[in-house]
Design a protein around this nucleic acid. Sequence first.
RNA 1: AGCGGGGUAGAGCAGUUGGCAGCUCGCCAGGCCCAUAACCUGGAGGUCGUCGGUUCGAGUCCGACCCCCGCAACCA
Length: 474
Amino acid sequence: MKNKFYITTPIYYVNAQPHIGHTYTTIAADVLARYHRDILGEPTFFLTGTDEHGAKIAEKAKEEKKELQVFVDEVAEEFVKAWRALNISNDNFIRTTDEKHMAAVQKALRYMYDKGDIYKGSYKGLYCRGCEQFKNEKDLIDGKCPDHKTEPEQMSEETYLFKMSKYQDKLLAKVKSDELKIRPEGKKNEMVSFIEKEGLQDVSFSRKNLAWGVPLPWDASHTSYVWADAFLNYLTGLGWKGPKDKCPKMWPAETQLMSKDILRVHATIWQAMLLSLDLPTSKELFIHGFFLADGQKMSKSLGNVIAPQDLVKKYGIDASRYLLMSATVFGSDGDIGWQKFDEKYNADLANGLGNLIARVSNILEKDSIKVNIKSGNDQALKKEFGKAMQNLRIDEALKILWGKLRQNDEKLSSAKPWEIKEIDAKKKILEPIAQDILNVAELLQPFMPETAEKIIKQFSAKQIKKGESLFPRI
RNA sequence: AGCGGGGUAGAGCAGUUGGCAGCUCGCCAGGCCCAUAACCUGGAGGUCGUCGGUUCGAGUCCGACCCCCGCAACCA
């Protein structure tokens, strides 16, 4: 039986428009999904979507004076449009306000409640009457609410708690043994030491007085804690209807991509929920880094935000995908900026890939040289590339392909086919180079689908023609 | 306090299991002229944060310290 591949991005919280962080995660997931689906031919499912419940959303909608459902519909649409514009091949787009999703969440919570994994308790905290919200100490300025300049009061609220502590030992063992892989290694260590040192506490799983959420089936005065609602998207996105339903064929996920800010909740609450639901835990959580813009945190006030649509406008879809994927070592933080993007665009795409293709195709056309090359020719390259992809060394995979391109630039320069008169001798030099270009283009497909297709088409013709330049210099 | 990540050529970064220190950009010199003023070759430039240890040998392992950045869970 063939391997399957289920990959997810987090579902994005609709309190903000799609930004470069969302874009990065989603493109990475798309690249991996396309690799498994198109290159390896595995049954693949790629899920992304939006997280639409919670107090923040309710506030935001109020701020914009919009009906809640209207507001979330609009923002969700922005995400759908953004991914379409970036040629993202997701198989489903899950929204937590989908009725089917909400119904499944209720069934899941009911199951956990009946099992005794959810119980009634209370949540103590600092409550600001102005905000009608609990506050964290670190959000306060001189002990006062920054918005209302008043000291919040100690209050406790009735809540339902999830018995996460019950699953601590099981989870720890799974993380340690890599049954639940957390990558990169450093992040795994972090989680192991977190669970060992601080332990898993039971978590509040419901809110009172917050209408914008999924009501608890046994107590409608409470709505589900947003994360509890959100996590289940990874199942409902596969059509899961609740605990009585069979485990979806594609579950567990081979890879769940996310950035480091949400690793902890994914490694603890989400996995504990799966255990409580008697379902297998995720196979792998992969944590990628954050972007800095020119060494600084991206923020609106600094004005250094790089928006995905600006990227696409300047470089085009495929180049944008390439630039983001090659920008950093996948799994660690990286520094980006317009100047860097320009440099990389010119060096790798215009001078590298684009120029090599122009050199070769030009001679072939001018001298009417017909080459005989075929697809799937370089198994060694495919294997080396595949190894990097399997290990989620996305940037490394690209470097391997570019190494191949460079070799061919060198070959051309040393063999100097333009000094040779006889067509056969020329062909002998150019044919393997054209073959290499075709090989690279085939593996480039997950990264730059349209460009790869163009190159493949160009180099599959009997008489290769020069065509338009793929990446004009900036 | 604690936890995690980082400190390697002018800039940005790689360095799997310890074995002559690499890549991209930039700079200098040369070559080439098929190509998107692109491409190729050579060169300059590093006490791999500091101090100590293990080892025939350490950027890589161990210990201590200094500096930078994040995180510190019911806030998604």
